[in-house]
Amino acid sequence: MKTLLLLVSVFFSPLVRAQQLQFHYDFRHSIDPTQNRRNYATLVFEYFKSNDSTGSFLLKMQTDFSGENNNIGQLFLQVSKNLRYWRPPLYLSLTYSGGLGVAPPAYGYYLTNSFGIGVAYPFQWKGAWFSTSLVYRYNAFPKASHDPQLTFYFGKGFFQYKLMIAGSLVGWSENRNQGTDYTAGQQGKKIAFFGDPQLWLKIGKSVSLGSRINLYYHTLTSENRIQVYPTLALKTQF
Score class of each variant (00 low, 15 high):
I117P: 05
I117A: 10
G118S: 02
G118D: 01
G118K: 03
V119R: 00
A120M: 00
A120Q: 03
Y121H: 09
Y121I: 02
Y121L: 05
Y121Q: 02
P122W: 01
F123T: 03
F123P: 07
F123I: 10
Q124N: 12
Q124T: 14
W125P: 06
W125N: 12
W125A: 10
K126M: 12
K126D: 11
G127F: 06
G127V: 02
G127Q: 11
A128G: 13
W129F: 14
W129D: 15
W129T: 13
W129Y: 13
W129K: 05
W129A: 14
W129C: 11
F130S: 00
F130P: 01
F130K: 02
S131E: 14
S131K: 11
S133N: 02
S133Q: 04
L134M: 05
V135W: 00
V135A: 04
V135H: 02
Y136G: 09
R137Q: 09
Y138K: 15
Y138S: 15
N139S: 13
N139D: 12
F141S: 11
F141Y: 15
F141G: 15
P142F: 07
P142S: 13
P142E: 10
P142A: 08
K143T: 09
A144E: 15
S145P: 14
D147P: 06
P148C: 04
P148K: 02
Q149P: 00
T151V: 06
T151E: 02
F152M: 02
F154V: 01
F154E: 01
F154N: 03
G155V: 07
G155K: 04
G155Y: 04
G157D: 10
G157P: 11
G157E: 09
F159P: 08
F159K: 14
F159M: 13
F159E: 14
Q160P: 04
Q160V: 10
Y161K: 15
Y161N: 14
Y161V: 13
K162V: 11
K162Q: 13
L163P: 03
L163W: 03
L163R: 08
L163I: 06
L163E: 10
L163Q: 08
L163Y: 04
M164W: 07
M164Y: 05
I165R: 04
I165V: 12
I165C: 03
